[in-house]
Amino acid sequence: MTPYALAAALFTLGLGGMVLLPNLVRKLLAMNVMQVAVIVFFIALATKDGGRVPILEPGETEAIAADFMNPLPHTLMLTAIVVSVATTGLALGLLIRIWRQYGSLDERILLSRLRGSGDDATRHGAGDDATRHGAGEPPR
């Protein structure tokens, strides 16, 4: 299995999960899988046969490009990892709000509950939806 093929497989898996899985937490996990796929792709790009870790020994001053792994994709992927954790954090915040308001994290159930409450009723209720649905606490 080449790394590129794995990246393609994970990417497809992640994207498919995001589109097809009805549970919002699962969508989030799939999103993370997809982001790791991109990282795998970039790290595979960065390798050189016989290359070293791109860190010089303390005494070393001269370096030849062919001897080291390409540090640029590594740098880019550090940023990509940060982006992915930031998105995950924000998404978890949203999920907690959604659970508190609608008592479900399943897209299909949510959709039916949203439809049942109608556009206008919920537009302006802001945070009060849980009480509107007749339960102070969402069903556990």
Partner: peptide, 29 residues
């Protein structure tokens, strides 16, 4: 994968490897 003569290995990135120490003082490229 691993081709040392690929564009990614020969364009732009060599500067980071060869000059980083002199230009920025960091051992970790």
């Amino acid at each position: 994968i691993g081709d040392p003569s690929s564009p990614a290995s020969t364009h732009v990135s060599p500067r980071f490897i060869e000059e980083a120490r002199r230009e920025t003082g960091a051992l970790n490229m």
